[in-house]
Amino acid sequence: MTTEPVWETHPVTPDRFEDFADVVNRNRRATHCWCLSHRLTTAEITELGGDGPHQRELAMRALCEREHPPGVVTYLDGTPVGWCNIGPRSEIPRLHRSKLIRPTDDLPVWSIVCIVVRSGYRRRGVTRHLIDGAVNHAAAHGAPAVESHPVDPPGRMDLTMAFVGTRAMFERSGFEVVGTTDATASRMPRLTMRRTLAS
């Protein structure tokens, strides 16, 4: 008898920080990515994390204490296997101020800016559960819609580019193309895709 896998997605609150780190920075390298580039300036990282070698980790820990943590972690049978950086667009400064990825309208959307699947768990359906879990998290906090800005390349894409997703990946989770931005990735224009949530 085959047991069905158990999928769960939870916001990265302080008690789940180590699970988040297991996905994005398993070896806890101080200079490795902590998924801060869209959230904080260098000065803000220093303010939140001090000036020591682990300032990025400490800054990310501080973000996890806010009303809207900076994302969600997806678990497969209790093991953290995916990370999605999601939150109100207004709380993601690099995106909020972007002149290349402008808002489609005045709707206070939530935005997905990064997706990471833990090494060893790719091609197992993690991304679909991760996106759906992130959308459910946004809906539970009153988001009217969720947007993302993937590219739709004609050939194989570098899967290590975490911010870059494929159009089909989001379409499978109910997103529709609502525009094209002036930003590019892998030499292709980024789309604006949106999933409107029930009011």
Rank of each mutant, 00 (worst) to 15 (best):
2 T>R: 04
4 E>K: 07
7 W>D: 09
15 D>R: 12
16 R>A: 06
19 D>W: 06
20 F>P: 01
21 A>P: 01
22 D>T: 13
29 R>A: 12
29 R>F: 06
30 A>S: 15
31 T>N: 10
32 H>K: 04
33 C>A: 04
34 W>I: 00
35 C>I: 00
36 L>D: 03
40 L>A: 01
41 T>Q: 11
43 A>Y: 03
54 H>Q: 12
57 E>N: 08
58 L>T: 07
59 A>D: 07
60 M>F: 15
61 R>D: 01
61 R>K: 03
62 A>K: 15
64 C>Q: 15
67 E>M: 04
69 P>A: 03
70 P>I: 01
71 G>T: 15
73 V>G: 05
77 D>I: 08
78 G>P: 00
87 G>K: 14
88 P>E: 12
92 I>C: 14
94 R>N: 14
99 K>I: 12
100 L>S: 06
106 D>P: 13
110 W>H: 08
110 W>P: 01
111 S>M: 02
113 V>F: 10
114 C>M: 01
115 I>A: 15
118 R>I: 06
124 R>E: 11
125 G>P: 03
126 V>D: 01
127 T>N: 10
129 H>W: 03
130 L>D: 00
131 I>M: 02
132 D>T: 11
132 D>P: 00
135 V>C: 12
137 H>T: 02
140 A>G: 05
142 G>Q: 08
146 V>K: 03
149 H>L: 02
152 D>N: 15
155 G>Y: 04
155 G>I: 11
157 M>A: 14
157 M>E: 03
157 M>W: 06
164 V>Y: 10
177 V>Q: 09
181 T>E: 08
184 T>Q: 01
185 A>Y: 04
189 P>V: 11
190 R>S: 00
191 L>Q: 10
195 R>W: 08
196 T>H: 15
196 T>K: 10
198 A>M: 02
